[in-house]
């Protein structure tokens, strides 16, 4: 029969249409909220999703995975007196590895000796050029530069971030990437312990 194929296809559309209601109703019956809740959003992007698929941005926001990367930021640790101790040593690796070359670092030189000091005087990232590749954070040997989760940065101006604007506390980093943070902290502690043990051993040997 001519038109059978169309009707068969329409049965799919009809089923999808029907599902949007049955799915909503089944959530209500179970006493759960399908919209504006983490559970609902997670379910909507799982393999079992049925019915309405979209997430109503900005009222709802997708839950981004830990590895999600947007633009980079610099991590600082809180010093004892509340001073911001930026982890960056201005070694320049990130500026060298950056594919579109959008990182600009001013290294600090000791005014007396002229020798480099391991803190940046200034640090610029041209966010309009940054291609969000994540190389800077991947190859930084000091865990000083990390990729942010905050993607709402649209603005009317060019976005060249300086050191001040790039700095975020280590606690923030731990918040957005808990697994990475824990792993790095453990590695750091292990390294420090090994160093201390080595120093002790050599001290013992000297004595």
């Amino acid at each position: 029969m001519y038109g059978k194929g169309i009707l068969k296809g329409l049965s799919v559309t009809w089923k999808r249409f029907w599902d949007t209601y049955t799915e909503d109703i089944s959530w209500v019956m179970r006493g759960k909220k399908r919209y504006n809740t983490d559970e609902g959003i997670r379910h909507r992007s799982s393999k079992d999703t049925k019915g309405i698929f979209t997430v109503q941005y900005p009222e709802e926001q997708l839950i981004v995975p830990e590895e999600f990367r947007y633009v980079p930021f610099l991590v600082y640790d809180e010093g004892a007196d509340g001073k911001k101790e930026v982890r960056c040593t201005s070694c320049g690796i990130c500026a060298k590895v950056c594919p579109p070359q959008c990182i600009w670092i001013v290294r600090t030189n000791d005014p007396a000796t002229g020798r480099p000091v391991p803190v940046p005087t200034d640090f610029y990232i041209d966010m309009d050029i940054c291609m969000n590749c994540g190389f800077c954070s991947e190859y930084c040997p000091f865990d000083a530069i990390k990729m942010d989760h905050d993607f709402d940065i649209a603005s009317y101006q060019r976005n060249v971030y300086n050191l001040e604007k790039l700095m975020k506390p280590a606690a923030y980093y731990a918040g957005i990437r808990p697994e990475n943070y824990t792993r790095e902290e453990e590695a750091r502690k292990a390294k420090e312990a090994a160093k201390a043990a080595k120093a002790e051993a050599s001290a013992a040997a000297a004595a």
């Binding site: 500026a95 060298k96 950056c98 594919p99 070359q101 670092i105 001013v106």
Partner: peptide, 15 residues
Amino acid sequence: TKPFKSRWPDGQHTF
């Protein structure tokens, strides 16, 4: 070739 020398150690940003 990259990396460009102007980026580090005296990387004053210019457009």
